[in-house]
């Protein structure tokens, strides 16, 4: 990263070129530095992969981006403006996320889950809920149609009426993505979207991510599955022990000796499948 590029402030210059700009993000818990001076830039409609061994600080970094944690130092800009430090404001600003361990609203219907995702793009409060004027009805209809469209987009429209907790595992992951997309984000952060999926489902998820990009979103993905990441991303960043080790195109990262040494331990072709299984049981 050249420092001259990133120090240029001003919203005008950033729009269109970079969606997310994280500079020197550091997160310390007591004596432990979980994330140490990580920079990350995500361009318009770019798919960026974030990989690294367990405990490398990937999810912590995500939490710093989404306001769940306030970074000890460093700043995060979304389309040129510094992100606020409350999760709901971050979502309002345009960054949505999914969770590593699925966190759906289990006792709400699938459709309601997505409608909750629409929350920050609607305003209706107590009195309009009681009064139900025309504007309320219109907003409610919009939310519903938007939610249905998203469910169809992810291919789970048929489940709209069932409770989220009754969904098959793979569909729960899709529902999380639909819910995140309901907030009309410009950038979506996916935390291990294929964890626990079989190879077919993983391939399908790849297509979903491409389709999300086609809708004009930028995507950041955390994943352990190398094949998935290298087949999907425009750019990959490798996090090891809280620091960014390498960043570049999949080809560059794949070839990098340090990555192989730090992350896989053995050459990629032999170790990928085994490494993934180990991570799966540990997380």
């Amino acid at each position: 990263m050249t420092s001259t590029m990133t120090t240029e402030p001003g919203p005008a210059g950033a729009v269109g070129t970079s969606v997310l700009e994280a500079r020197g993000v550091t997160m310390r818990f007591g004596g432990l530095t979980a994330v140490d001076g990580v920079d990350l830039t995500v361009g318009d409609r770019e798919i960026v992969g974030l990989i690294g061994p367990n405990g490398a600080g990937k999810t912590t970094f995500f939490n710093c981006l989404t306001g769940l944690y306030v970074p000890t130092s460093g700043d995060v800009r979304y389309k040129g403006t510094v992100l606020p430090s409350k999760p709901y404001r971050v979502t309002q600003a345009g960054i949505a996320r999914t969770f590593q361990n699925i966190r759906l609203f289990a006792n709400m219907t699938v459709l309601e889950n997505v409608m909750v995702g629409r929350h920050c793009r609607t305003k209706e409060g107590l009195f309009s809920a009681i009064g139900r004027g025309p504007r309320y009805r219109a907003a409610e209809r919009d939310s519903r149609e938007n939610a249905r469209e998203l469910l169809d987009f992810l291919g789970i429209g048929r489940h709209a009426g069932s409770l989220a907790r009754n969904l098959p595992y793979g569909d729960q992951r899709k529902l999380e993505i639909a819910r995140a997309m309901a907030s009309d984000p410009g950038l979506i952060l996916l935390d291990e979207p294929t964890a626990g999926m079989n190879p077919q489902e993983t391939r399908a998820t790849q297509d979903v991510v491409f389709k999300i990009r086609e809708r004009g979103l930028a995507v950041v993905v955390i994943e352990h599955d190398m094949r998935f990441i290298f087949g999907l991303c425009d750019r990959v960043a490798v996090l090891v022990q809280g620091r960014k080790l390498v960043e570049g195109t999949p080809q560059v990262v794949r070839a990098d000796e340090r990555v192989i040494a730090a992350y896989l331990g053995t050459p990629y072709e032999d170790g990928a499948a085994g490494a993934r299984e180990d991570e799966g049981t540990a997380s």
Partner: peptide
């Protein structure tokens, strides 16, 4: 009031908070 609020943006936000407050905040709910 109960019936109307229950089935509204507000009611959904409440149930979402009840179910998982962290996820609800990540969906933009204050």
């Amino acid at each position: 009031i109960y019936a109307r609020v229950n089935e509204s943006r507000l009611g959904r936000a409440w149930v979402a908070i009840r179910e998982d407050e962290t996820a609800a905040e990540a969906m933009g709910i204050h």
